[in-house]
Design a protein around this nucleic acid. Structure first.
Length: 559
RNA sequence: GCACCCAUAGUUUAAUGGAUAGAGCAUAGGUCUUCGGAACCUAUUGUGAGGGUUCGAAUCCUUCUGGGUGCGCCA
């Protein structure tokens, strides 16, 4: 229930304060001691030519017929504080929450389509922790938007084009033996760079091989496709474990035959200008360097491809929003591409959004580098976390059924949580110590709290009509308030493309519940109280499970 | 040189311009008549510096300091 909206309407109906200025002022109180929601009257002071305290007093005096769910109103230091009827709020919040159940994706379809470009792995390169953020942020947004009723198109924009693959083929034909694996491909790549420093002719050879890929030479294509297959098989293992899905794997190479059209279009629209031998779209008047479209040798560039890609996505999916979950290093690139789309006359350029996130480095050894081999493979991190979980289970709960599956859920959860708990824009220093911490604000903490709820509910279930009359203490009511804000939180996470908002919320909810749990006997002699507390427990369990699903966490019933 | 981003406790971090800046880890104590101790409670320490706007600033503007990223033929 939208309490804010109702109270806002109620305040406005009194006619004491100007409507337009009052709308949007009402907020939920941070501190329960200051009521459940409040109206700061300071902004109204100027136009009303009245002290905030007086305004609050005047409003209070006019409120002789409070809405049924409001118990009382107080005027304090210029704030008008509304205290809700705890029983009534508990009733409606829990009804709504229990009604939602633990089913994923319960919102009706809204008919809108959103494309999300995320993960975007490179062929023949290791899937390392540098890919963790884009993968889980994108994967989480995918689920959040689906939950909100969008038609979501998840796109893995494969890095499967570029001279680097000429290098790889060169190395393969020179030193590669038989079946290749991801590791052997990486070795070949590293070896090429080492040897090319001494022997520049290798670079010529690489260009030759890339040319062959470009022109569709049978040998080159067959081998390259094989490398692609090896890579996808490898990364799919990780995606499966993380619960990540894609609807399209159209990568860079997919747009090869669509680049000329873009160039022609830019020419036709008089946007293309020759500069230092290259073809560019000048963007000086928008405070940006020019956007390079064609190299002086006529070859296309990154931006050319992304323009073609955006047009293709609009044509194919007719998106309402087109997200790119890509590191902030490419801020300028996307700003340029979106501006060029706008200059091309596409109104939907404003629906294209770059969702940037921070850089990942390794504690002690600095920036990640495939060439130098300074990488931590994602699969190793996951495996380590799962191993640690197994050890903990063996110690704490050796009789646990399906312990393998549970260890997987918890280990993976710890890693995923670590990537989704902070603001995405901040840089992240990876350390095993942090990734493997299972205490406090962590994935396992959420899972533990969920399992705790399940454990109680396995002993008793709420039944029949529930009387919330007794549940007025602060700890219990704090839980009710939290449950009430779930919908707003999910929406906010979607609007800001920020799954961490939901992650923080779930931690708060779990903390609230654990506090409640410690302080209140759920299964007790008073049947009414027990029934009500069981209902709260069920509501928390459902909300945790729903929310965790949206941030890619599994919720085992036992652990 | 120019542009953008970041700066909160020892550390990781939270806070639509609103009331006493909220947590986790670490540290030191405590909770066992336990529905799951991967929990809970108590204690300690904080808005990089200076200006400005505002009734009110961690939040907005500005200068400075420190760190990061990007700036035409890579993606």
């Amino acid at each position: 229930m939208d309490y804010i909206k109702q109270i806002e309407d109620y305040i406005v109906s009194k006619g004491v304060v100007p409507e337009t200025e009052t709308r949007g002022l009402l907020v939920y109180s941070q501190d329960m001691n200051n009521g459940d929601c409040c109206l700061p009257c300071f902004k109204l002071s100027k136009s009303m030519r009245l002290a905030p305290v007086m305004i609050a007093n005047k409003l209070k005096d006019a409120m002789t017929d409070l809405p049924s769910f409001v118990e009382r109103v107080e005027s304090v230091n210029g704030y008008l504080n509304f205290y809700f009827s705890r029983t009534a709020m508990a009733q409606s919040v829990l009804d709504a929450t229990l009604d939602r159940g633990d089913k994923f994706g319960s919102k009706p379809q809204n008919g809108k389509t959103i494309c999300i470009d995320y993960s975007s792995v490179n062929i023949a390169k290791p899937f390392h922790i540098g890919h963790l953020l884009t993968t889980v942020i994108g994967g989480s947004l995918y689920r959040i938007y689906k939950y909100l009723g969008y038609n979501v198109v998840g796109i893995n924009h494969l890095g499967d084009w570029g001279t680097q693959f000429g290098k790889l083929l060169t190395a393969y034909f020179k030193w590669g033996k038989g079946e290749q694996t991801m590791d052997s491909l990486l070795e070949l790549y590293v070896r090429f760079h080492k040897e090319a420093e001494k022997d520049d002719s290798l670079n010529d050879e690489a260009r030759m091989w890339f040319k062959k890929i470009e022109t569709g030479d049978a040998t080159a294509t067959t081998v390259f496709e094989q490398f692609k297959k090896i890579t996808l098989a490898e990364v799919d293992k990780v995606y499966k474990r993380l619960g990540i899905v894609f609807d399209s794997y159209n990568g860079e190479s997919f747009y090869n035959d669509k680049l000329q059209d873009v160039v022609d279009e830019l020419k036709a629209k008089n946007l293309l200008v020759e500069s230092e031998g290259a073809m560019v779209v000048p963007l000086e008047q928008y405070g940006m360097p020019p956007c390079l479209i064609l190299k002086s040798d006529g070859a296309s560039l990154y931006a050319t491809r992304d323009l073609a890609c955006a047009e293709y996505r609009k044509k194919t999916y007719d998106f309402d929003k087109n997200l790119y979950v890509v590191a902030y290093q490419q801020n300028l690139h996307f700003k340029q591409v979106f501006k060029v789309l706008e200059l091309m006359g596409y109104k939907w350029a404003e629906d294209c959004v770059h969702v940037p996130f921070g850089m990942v480095s390794i504690e002690g050894s600095g920036a990640l580098s495939t060439r130098s081999g300074n990488v931590v493979k994602l699969i190793d991190v996951i495996d380590t976390a799962v191993e640690k979980t197994k050890a903990i289970i063996a110690e704490k709960n050796p009789d646990l059924a399906n312990s393998e599956e549970t260890a997987e859920a918890i280990g993976v959860g710890a890693v995923v949580f670590g990537a989704l708990c902070g603001s995405r824009i901040k840089d992240m220093v990876f350390s095993y110590e942090k990734a493997l911490n299972f205490d406090g604000e962590t994935g396992p903490y959420l899972q533990y709290t969920h399992a705790r709820c399940c454990s109680v509910l396995a002993k008793a279930q709420p039944t029949g009509k529930i009387d919330y009359g007794e549940l007025v203490d602060d700890d219990t009511f704090a839980l009710i308030r939290h449950l009430n804000s779930y919908d707003d939180i999910v929406k906010s996470a979607a609007d800001k493309y920020e799954p961490s908002i939901l992650t923080r919320y779930l931690i708060d909810l779990a903390q609230c519940f654990n506090k409640f749990y410690i302080g209140h006997r759920i299964i007790c002699d008073d049947k009414n109280v027990m029934n009500a507390r069981l209902a709260i427990t069920l509501a928390v369990k459902n909300t945790l499970k729903n929310g965790m699903e949206l941030i890619l966490l599994k919720a085992p019933e036992k652990m």
